[in-house]
Design a protein around this nucleic acid. Structure first.
Lengths: 214, 214
DNA sequence: TGTACATCAGTGAACGCGCGTTCACTGATGTAC
DNA sequence: TGTACATCAGTGAACGCGCGTTCACTGATGTAC
């Protein structure tokens, strides 16, 4: 039996879980994470408004599942960026690839990225979410250690923060449309991103630039 | 006649505009920008639910006014950070101070900062808002140019992006509570911020780290 | 100092709306025989 | 291949809620005289 989404009889949609998650993505892109309602998701999935309950429990459950999917995709996108590197690439290239993966995730999965920035909408104690959310940061962390293995805790923290914050900030500004002359045309955005990654890697590998003690 | 906020008779609050803006800040801090409602603001200001209309028009007007106040305070906080520098400080110190001001703004005015990240909630065509929003970026831009006057357009754009994105990303992650071990205790957060600023300045002044052409 | 009056900030009832959740139900599915 | 049946995904009516906005109003304010 083929699963043809929109159902024939009235009961048993067949792929309702997926259809609801796709509806979440649509709504987030159109009107932002706060515009997501169970009723609108059900409407778009062509299903009665209470149909989400058996799959996700309540609204928060739906959004948490969506966010979990996002974290998984973020990790996958990072790994995919690593995979495009020629074999035997130096750790610097790998660190840049991790950042490139983050930026690509935010760009290719804007709905997941935008929900990622709304921690209060999801259940952060959810087990699946917690597990999925650990991966991306661990990947960045490992990549940094490969590049600069001998940093003391403080210098390491500073570089981790720089790398994470700038790549996240870049993606957030782009998603929000702030500083519009940075993002169009598309090639410019890519160029800015690459230059940004180069600066990050260079800052992460620079010998001891932390001297501003007060 | 003293203006005692809560009014004596029933009409004429006296400082309703301010009281409503303060209510917005309270609600944003407690439950986020989306939780702001005209009725709840009026409730907290001790006033009937339709009282905001004469001052702000509609809900979007209230939020836009709040955001405008935020942009003004951001510029002020940046200037205040510049003012704490000893006279004749080098441009590098001034660039760091601008970043320090941004971070301080996000920390000291969390409600204004959080609303700043929700561009869709406000009226971006509002004249007052546009004017106020230009200042902070202009200050950063000038500070960068003072540090590195001879950059070509591309290198300049990359450094501007690095500076802005990392300071914004840092503040956003802190506001959202992500990566919690970075923010407590408070002294650690300050130290991480200072190290971050040093890395940014160092990256902005480094001669030609943009070589990743593809 | 006293009075008349225009202004307009704030009131409160009313409107229509869409939401999340609940609940008894129905009927398609697929397994056991 | 055919039949009985348990399961449970999805239905649809109902609930109570808080929202934004409108609108005729009221009464404090402060200015003109």
């Amino acid at each position: 039996m083929t699963v043809t989404a929109k159902a024939k009889g009235r009961h048993h949609h067949g792929a309702l879980r997926r259809a609801l998650l796709d509806a979440v993505a649509e709504i987030v892109i159109e009107d932002g994470p706060e515009a997501v309602t169970l009723r609108e998701c059900a409407r778009r999935a062509g299903v009665s408004h209470a149909a989400a309950a058996p799959h996700f429990g309540d609204k928060r459950g739906l959004l948490t599942a969506f966010a979990t999917e996002g974290e998984t995709r973020l990790a996958e996108t990072m790994l995919a960026a690593l995979d495009t590197l020629p074999g035997g690439s130096p750790p610097e290239a790998r660190l840049a690839a991790i950042g490139r993966g983050y930026i690509a995730f935010a760009r290719n999965w804007p709905a997941h990225f935008r929900l990622k920035c709304r921690a209060n909408l999801i259940d952060r104690t959810n087990r699946d979410w917690c597990e999925a959310a650990e991966r991306p940061f661990a990947l960045l962390s490992e990549a940094l250690d490969a590049v600069a293995p001998d940093l003391d805790a403080r210098a390491r923290r500073a570089r981790l923060t720089l790398a994470w914050a700038s790549v996240h900030g870049f993606s957030a500004l782009r998603a929000e449309g702030s500083g519009s002359d940075l993002w169009r045309p598309e090639e410019r955005a890519t160029m800015v991103a690459e230059d940004l990654l180069a600066l990050i890697v260079s800052a992460c590998t620079s010998p001891a630039p932390t001297r501003q003690t007060e």
